[in-house]
Amino acid sequence: MKIIIFYFIIFLNLSSSYAAKKNIDQNQIYKNLRCLVCQGQSISDSNSDFAQTIKLVVKDLIKQGKSEKQIYTFMADKYGDWIVYKPQLNKQNFILWVLPYVILLGGGLVIFSIIRKKRKKF
């Protein structure tokens, strides 16, 4: 257990320092944009005319110094939220992002309570 806790602390520290260093990877962005004219394909996977154009625009936006997040916002602004594969954390998508963690915590609590009940009896 201790190892895991220790490990998790390292993880949290490192991941926060890591986030700052990251530079923009265009393939990553293509993968996170949905090709609107295809069935369930990303811009990266698709060779449609539309995907080609979007790739060009994304390249331009990167050149203009836009951040990854700004590019997603730009695309969502033009084509609607449907185009981004990673739903933004906002009021509407709050449940989507938070519920899994609530379940994770809740499940842990249930297990904990089952085990504790037993302990009290002794």
Binding site: L36, V37, D49, F50, Q52, T53, I54, L56, V57, D60, K78, Y79, G80
Partner: peptide
């Protein structure tokens, strides 16, 4: 076709 992205055109 880049300009049309500003209009949200996809086909």
């Amino acid at each position: 076709g880049k300009k049309s992205v500003n209009f949200g055109i996809y086909g």
